[in-house]
Amino acid sequence: MADDAGRDALMDRLDPRARVAAAFAFSVLVAVGPRPAAALAALAAAGAAAAISGLRARDIVRRLAPVGAFLPLIWLTLPFTRPGQPVFRLGPLAATDPGLRLALLVTLKALAVTLALVALLGRMDLPRLGHALHHLRVPDKLVHLLLMAARYVDVLRAESARLASAMKARAFRPRASPRTFRAAGYLAAMILIRGFDRAARVHAAMKLRGFRGRFYVLSHFAFARRDLAFCAAAGLILGLIAWMQWTAT
């Protein structure tokens, strides 16, 4: 990836399968939990993972930004829409105690899950992610959908950029007019048609190399001792979070 600080951080050397599995288990566990304290602990654990991810703080913040943009909406609506004991009033609106707690819980959960995903998977390129998913028995069709999309998104983007600049070269300037909407429609349709033609050619090329509907995976992952240590640590942390969520008083 382009935004790496140091090559080969500890996280990069861990088995991608273990990282994907940990990210999945963590996300599910944190998402279903009812207690803010557990969510706070989860956020701390995600922070620890971020510390060994090799990502710079700046890049982590940049990747969390979309969540940050979504959270104010939570704080503007949730506290005022839950029934319960009012804590303070804004004109006709009353912020309730359960509402504020829920907003806090959602905030902590969203940050914890996103930070964990960024830390565990942020520096994994898509081919490795695809292979990890394949080894974790995710259906092949989904994996190949992901990998093909990753492979061809640049081709499609280049194609749409070429068409768009061809439009510009003929003095096209987008306005709020029916003509603009029609031109945009043509552009979208042309990208679809070209994508369809491209898919037919790719399939033909695959057939020529003997494709009969089966894919093979070339790369292997090696599960090393440090991966065992990582899995043990992840299991321990997940267990602790689960305990805080449902058992601890």
Binding site: L147, F211, V217
Partner: peptide, 22 residues
């Protein structure tokens, strides 16, 4: 157009695709 022919994530896998199918 080589983009029609190369569909795998890495070049090595693209080269391996045919031999696997054989």
């Amino acid at each position: 157009d080589p983009d029609d022919q190369l569909f795998c994530p890495t070049v090595a896998e693209d080269v391996a695709f045919g031999p696997f199918n054989l």
